[in-house]
Amino acid sequence: MALDKGEITKIAKLARLTINDEKIPEYTASLSSILDLVEQLQAVDTNNIEPMAHPLDATQRLREDAVTETNQRDDYQKIAPATEDGLYLVPKVID
């Protein structure tokens, strides 16, 4: 299955990646060959087979509702690219 430039650009937008024009041919080729590999699955008979999301048949453990965290803002924001007044800064958000 071959992906075209339009599809690549659309997925890239969804994933918030920019693919430079000169790299598009390389990406279309490699992604198409991966999809060809994956295409083998279509021949598999999976009738009445439950999808398997987890390797083990375990169930979710629940955590007791208790506050266990303390304020570590200074430590956590030391590694942030841009902060002010304890806030993370990003270019203006428009609703």
């Binding site: 841009a82 002010e84 806030l87 993370y88 800064l89």
Partner: peptide
């Protein structure tokens, strides 16, 4: 914030 938006999580 200088033309930026602040994020509080």
């Amino acid at each position: 914030y200088h033309g930026m938006t602040g994020i509080d999580l």
